[in-house]
């Protein structure tokens, strides 16, 4: 059976203005990303701000242009689909956002926002049917039918995120890319939304790509964890293995950056923060993406970039010092 989603050396980025009459130039932000995601599984993607996690999510959904490589959706190369066919296919892979309120058009009622995708995905539906489906989707995310007549400015953050989720599930998707869906919410609401996501995953058989910089949330929800640094994968493996002992020095630095609840231990920890500059993603250096800040750095780290190698049958890492186990 073909996997739900497969990426082969995907490189993607954003357009930047070129000359008056020429097409915009594409500047790559994520480089050579390859992985496979099976139906119903959750992949957590972690990394610091600006490492390309969100860009990767958008590239998978074909919201930003692919520069090279492939996104195979159930074996079908999405780049080869005609625009019209891709539009209809979009019902199968959806997205929810960090700023949930900004993701809702302030001029529309909640019912219209949630039902809108059906106009494309199931154009034969009547207006009334669409409304019924919107109410049904709202119910699935725990909101009453009253919400359909409301406007976004009447929503709290948690309610807005539920509305976004209702819109994402209305077309019966197989994958939802969750782009930092809880980092803007209160801690108590975070737990509600994460648990709702997990319930929906079970109920609808969803695969999730959960992008976050919050390692404990990722630990709670993910089956696999992938660590990104400056647009590249540096480590990828099953959750329990990863949390038991991260392989890449960058992953260890991320783990160490999580604050300690115990103030005495927290005080002793501060010295571990990373020295060195974060290199510009627009002007990449030849070596390892982490070389400028790595505590173990050697000359060859700056000269050649380590490949992402299989360390065990299930784990991958990109570091010269992590040797494959035989």
């Amino acid at each position: 059976m073909t996997a739900l989603l497969q990426l082969h050396d995907l490189t993607a980025g954003y357009p930047v203005p070129a000359g008056l009459l020429s097409r915009d130039r594409l500047v790559p932000v994520v480089h050579d990303v390859s992985f496979t995601l099976e139906a119903g599984r959750t992949l957590g993607i972690v990394g610091e701000s600006g490492c390309g996690k969100s860009t990767l999510g958008r590239a998978i959904l074909q919201l930003i242009p692919t520069i090279s490589g492939k996104v195979l959706w159930q074996g079908q190369d999405l780049a080869e689909l005609a625009p019209e066919a891709l539009r209809r296919r979009r019902s199968e892979f959806q997205i929810i956002f960090q700023d949930a309120l900004a993701a809702l058009d302030p001029r529309m009622t909640i019912g219209r926002i949630v039902g809108q995708p059906l106009a494309t995905f199931e154009p034969h539906l009547s207006r009334a049917d669409r409304h019924d489906r919107a109410v049904e989707a709202l119910r699935q995310v725990g909101l009453s039918a009253d919400f359909a007549a409301r406007y976004p400015h009447e929503m709290s953050g948690g309610q807005a995120q539920r509305v976004g989720l209702a819109r994402a599930i209305i077309g019966r998707p197989k994958l939802i890319v969750c782009d930092e869906p809880v980092s803007a919410l209160d801690v108590s609401i975070q737990a509600q939304v994460v648990n709702l996501l997990m319930d929906l995953q079970e109920e609808l058989g969803l695969a999730l790509i959960f992008i976050s910089h919050n390692l404990s949330v990722v630990r709670h929800i993910s089956h696999e964890v992938m660590v990104m640094c400056l647009g590249r994968i540096v480590e990828h493996g099953p959750r329990d293995d990863f949390y038991a002992g991260p392989l890449h020095p960058y992953s260890r630095a991320l783990m160490d950056a999580v604050p300690e609840p115990d103030p005495r231990r927290e005080r002793g920890r501060i010295g571990l923060s990373l020295p060195g500059e974060l290199p510009s993603s627009l002007d990449p250096l030849p070596g390892c993406v982490f070389a400028s800040r790595c505590p173990q750095v050697e000359a060859r780290c700056r000269a050649d970039r380590p490949d992402l190698r299989d360390i065990t049958p299930t784990r991958r890492a990109a570091c010269h010092f992590v040797e494959p186990l035989r």
Partner: peptide, 13 residues
């Protein structure tokens, strides 16, 4: 804005 991105993800032209 995100709601435009959501509209594109929702298959609008």
């Amino acid at each position: 804005r995100e709601f435009i991105e959501a509209a594109r993800a929702g298959g609008m032209t």
